[in-house]
Design a protein around this nucleic acid. Structure first.
Ligand SMILES: [Mn+2]
Ligand SMILES: [Mn+2]
Ligand SMILES: [Mn+2]
Ligand SMILES: [Mn+2]
Lengths: 219, 219
DNA sequence: TTAAATATTTTGGTATGCCAAATTTAATAA
DNA sequence: TTATTAAATTTGGCATACCAAAATATTTAA
């Protein structure tokens, strides 16, 4: 298998398994990688052969120790590059994901560690995602999705789960950036939309948006 | 054809044609890309179809305007990255070529122009090779190979044509770095080895080494 | 506990990128 | 000008990465 193919599978499996705890289904992977399910079945069989994953037919897939190690390395490269592009090269947080998708495959430990060092070995990337250290160790957090919070609460935005330009520009337009504080006034029963206050301005956000915002409770 | 394959062919053809003037043979390309000649014949037929090259069977290949444009873009990316790695990230001139071979395929104009801008839009890379500007324009020079110079002359080292770590470390060990001044005392008739003085130290270099050093005459 | 819906796998097939061996073409030396 | 040598091309084949459609298996809803 081509190295880039392996890397894209492992990264995807890692991301879909939420910190490598859950088992991942073929269809999830197929959607994420925009591949035909038949292709994914084949791919997983090969990754199993290569001992990167445990793939149990018609049940699901999880990473082996070896697979998780490589996955965490790709995730590290991706997030370090995103941070470098934003902090050192002046890109917007809505532009960097696509570039990092390519840069992540350049495998040079010295390069990544040098970038990390220039950045002061950051623990979070521009979207609030944790950056694994050189050994693959990752900072645990007790953050939640805004959609999972209680009504009437104070929160700080810690990250996002959608990295599309469209979503990030929408957030920016409404001052919903990382570090911003917000207060949830109420949740509409009909559609679970949230009425929130942020920077003294009141606004309504859909449940779909609230699902993509990661927050820390301040209460 | 895969974009990376196209790019590697075009860059190679550009480099072998010395500034896109000469016609390039299949065997040269095969050696450079470490491919079987049969593969190169196929590759060139496809690149001709795609209008990147004019490939005349059993005669030779040259770039079209479109092909030269893309080739110069790859060369620019490669040399900007090499310069950035040396000047901003602290790599040695003997380490950067291999990394740039991967980074050159990341296609993002804004990124390359940003790196170039941080570097002050350099005209030469760490090996003395000229960096095309955004439009593909390249600084012409009247530099020569040290092996082509006259006996008893003063020269300044302007570049190298071999980018291997082994060669570059050999040069560094002997203070034969870019900008260094040297004096050619004599050329041995038997093997064309050169007796030179550099930094007050005398040393003998083989004709093979002299062929890989680009100089400007100071006389 | 079945039928319907959904997910997965198998099968058959395409496109790309490569190579080894055989053949043809071109260049060089006698 | 002919051998001889070298370069290029053709042919037949292999491996990888995909997909569409058909066949199975699993899950979910009756
Ligand atoms: Mn990727
Ligand atoms: Mn990110
Ligand atoms: Mn390359
Ligand atoms: Mn260079």
């Amino acid at each position: 298998m081509r190295q880039e193919t392996i890397e894209n599978y492992l990264k995807t499996i890692y991301n879909l398994s939420s910190n490598n705890t859950a088992i991942v289904s073929n269809s999830q992977i197929a959607i994420q990688l925009e591949l035909n399910p038949a292709t994914v079945t084949e791919g997983l069989r090969k990754l199993h052969e290569l001992k990167y994953v445990i793939y149990e037919k018609s049940y699901g897939t999880r990473l082996t120790t070896q697979g998780a190690k490589l996955a965490l390395d790709i995730v590290r490269r991706h997030r370090i590059w995103e941070t470098y592009l934003v902090k050192e090269l002046g890109f917007g947080w809505d532009e960097v994901h696509a570039i990092a998708e390519e840069l992540e495959h350049v495998n040079n430990t010295k390069l990544i560690n040098k970038l990390a060092s220039i950045l002061g070995n950051p623990i979070y990337d521009p979207h609030g995602d944790p950056i694994p250290d050189e050994k693959g160790k990752i900072k645990k957090s007790n953050f939640i999705k805004l959609s999972e919070g209680l009504v009437k609460g104070n929160y700080t935005i810690m990250g996002v789960t959608d990295h599309s330009s469209a979503f990030l520009r929408y957030l920016e337009k409404n001052a919903l950036i990382i570090g911003a504080k917000l207060f949830v006034k109420s949740i509409e029963e009909f559609d679970q939309s949230l009425s929130i206050v942020c920077q003294k301005k009141e606004l309504i956000i859909s449940s779909k948006v609230a699902e993509c915002i990661i927050v820390q409770s301040n209460d």
